[in-house]
Amino acid sequence: MTAASMGRQTRQLTKGFTARLTGKAERGADRKVRRGSVDVEDRRARVFQPIGDGTTAGAMGWIDCMLKVVAEWDNEQRAKGGARPLGLHGLRVLEALLGRHGKVALDFKSGRLDPALETIARAAGVTKTTVVRALARLKDMKVLDWVRRSERTGNDGVFGPQRRQVSNAYFFTPHELPARVAQRLRDLLARKRLRRMGTTPAASPAATTEPSCPDLRGTLARIKAGIARRDEGVNASPPCGQYPLSGVEE
C-alpha cells in the first residue's frame, strides 16, 4: 500500500470517528446525489397526475391524441425547412414513456411514472444517452417535466453515503404547450369524447294527441287520407312516354 492511499484511509477513518464522537454522523449532500433532488416522501416529489380522466378508455384516448399532436408538430417544423424539435428517436422515447412499447409502467389512475433511464432506453430501443437528450427536448417543448428524487440509505450513525439517487418522477404538462398546439390537443380530445359518447342523441317519439270528439277524429282521418292520396299522385312515376300527370303522349 502506498503512502498516499494510507493517508486517504487515515483521513477517512478520522472523519468517521469525529462524526460519531460529535454526533454528526450524517454528512452534507452526498457526492452521487444530484443537486436539486428532493426526498421521495417530500410533497415536492408528488407530481403525478391522472392520465386523461384516469380510466383505461380515457387514458388510451389521451395518449393517442398527445402522440398525434406532438408528431404533427415535429413534422410541421421539418416541412418548414427547419430541424425537427424532437426527431424519430425522441418520438420513440415519448411513446415508451406513454407505455406504447411495454417495459415502462404507467399508472393511468394516479399517473405514476418513474422508470429508470435504462428502462426507458430498453423500451424505446435507443441508448441511454439518446434518452437523456430526448428528455431534454421534450422538456424544452413543454411536453413533460420531472423532479429529481433521492432517498435515505439507512446508514444513520455510520460513516458513508446517507442518501442515494433514485429515478425521476415524470409528469406531462399539456397546459404549458404553445397555444396553437394545446388547442389542437383539446380539439382532438373533444372529438374523441364525442365519438365515445355518441354524437347523435336518441330521437324521442313525437307525442300524438287524438281529439276526444268522435266527429272531429273522423274529420281529421278523412283529411289525412286525402293528403295521402294526393301525395301518392304527385310522387308517382309518370307512365313511360307521357309528361307528368298528363295523358298527352310525346
Rank of each mutant, 00 (worst) to 15 (best):
G111H: 02
L117I: 15
F108V: 08
E118F: 11
H101T: 11
G102T: 01
L113C: 06
K109L: 09
L91Y: 12
D107V: 04
A96K: 09
L106I: 08
L106F: 13
D114P: 01
A96L: 13
V104H: 05
R112V: 11
P115K: 02
D107R: 12
D114T: 11
A96C: 07
R122L: 14
L117F: 11
G90N: 02
T119L: 12
F108P: 08
L106N: 07
H89Q: 08
R92Y: 14
S110Q: 09
P115D: 01
K103L: 12
V93G: 03
L98W: 00
A116N: 11
S110Y: 13
G99D: 07
R92C: 04
V104W: 06
A96I: 01
G99H: 08
L106Y: 10
L91D: 10
L113A: 00
R100Q: 14
A116K: 10
R100N: 01
V104Y: 09
K109A: 12
V104Q: 05
L113M: 00
A123I: 00
G90R: 01
S110D: 02
A105Y: 15
P115F: 00
V104R: 02
L117Q: 15
G102W: 10
L91P: 05
T119E: 15
H101Y: 14
L88C: 00
H101I: 03
R100P: 05
D107L: 03
L97P: 12
G111V: 04
L88T: 11
V104M: 09
P115E: 03
S110M: 07
P115R: 04
L98P: 00
A121Y: 08
A123T: 00
K109Y: 11
L117N: 15
E118V: 14
A105N: 12
T119H: 03
A116G: 12
A105L: 13
A123Q: 02
P115S: 00
E118P: 06
L91N: 13
E118Y: 13
E95T: 05
G90S: 06
K109T: 11
D114G: 01
L94Y: 07
R112H: 08
A105T: 15
